[in-house]
Design a protein around this nucleic acid. Structure first.
Ligand code: SF4
Ligand code: SF4
Lengths: 135, 135
DNA sequence: TTTATATTGGACTAATTTTATCCCATTTAT
DNA sequence: ATAAATGGGATAAAATTAGTCCAATATAAA
């Protein structure tokens, strides 16, 4: 019932990028050093952020990673989803899973409600908010 | 970011007990058959519910498991906690974990708030409520 | 007192997920 | 060319989750 270490790596990476001058690329190497993240693992992590349209990358000398959109448009939920897939508090709350009991299962009903409350909080604040609240 | 299978086993077990006549014991064997839970694994699961004071057990012929308190006094959060330990959306939100960054970490702050919202929902409804909403 | 029933508890195994590493290919600026 | 950087496949290590096996103990009933 925890976010994974990789998800936290992703958040910290995006915070690092959001803190950098707008439009500037940062290499994964540099991020890994500054954030204490294993660099090869960070590469994999960033490769999950690309298809989620949270960052863009550029190869070669002077290349690196930058935000794909303004920090005001990226929520914590976006990041979690990019790394872990759609958040589900139980199997039956995940897309494409069908449990025959679901229609009259009070557990899934409660977990569904609880999940809604959770998603709302995770969606409320953006990367930009997070940066600001650090100051 | 999901409850474990074992936690769901625990919930279904307690629902089964709550549905039985008050004060009546049910054997783990019977529960495992009715709920489709591996019986040896269910035994382990129930052994986690005993020290959490959610059920009491009685050995020997005619023995079994029963609720340790009224179904109105058992919340979903109680059950999750009994099986998985104190719920924490990230390591640093668990008791006895100290991250030096925590004081000015906006991630832990947001996750903390989100966790609060989640806990509130999980605490809101009791086993009794769950039974009633099935009808 | 024997027997059948049921939980207790420890050791063990299996499966799955998470975390991490290795290594080579490809792209790009200088 | 060369150095810097990401892309991506294969694999390994570690941790967690799920499940099994079995002997011991307690209890009620025959
Ligand atoms: S039994 Fe209920 S909680 Fe469990 S998987 Fe089915 S619908 Fe979900
Ligand atoms: S860096 Fe922030 S979120 Fe991560 S463990 Fe430390 S306090 Fe928690």
């Amino acid at each position: 019932m925890q976010i994974t270490r990789q998800t936290e790596y992703a958040v910290r990476t995006l915070l690092e990028l959001a803190a950098a001058p707008v439009g500037e690329t940062v290499s994964t190497r540099l991020i890994s050093e500054r954030q204490g993240i294993p660099d090869e693992f960070l590469k994999k992590t960033i490769q999950l952020l690309v298809p989620a349209h949270l960052v863009t990358t550029h190869r070669g000398t002077g290349g690196g990673v930058r935000l794909a959109k303004p920090a005001t448009d990226i929520t914590l939920l976006d990041i979690i989803t990019a790394i872990e897939g759609t958040l589900a508090l139980n199997v039956c709350l995940a897309p494409d899973y069908h449990c025959p009991n679901k229609p009259n299962c009070s557990l899934s009903r409660i977990l569904g409600k609880a999940q809604e409350a959770l998603l709302e909080e995770l969606q409320r604040e953006t990367l930009a908010d997070m940066i600001n609240s650090q100051k």
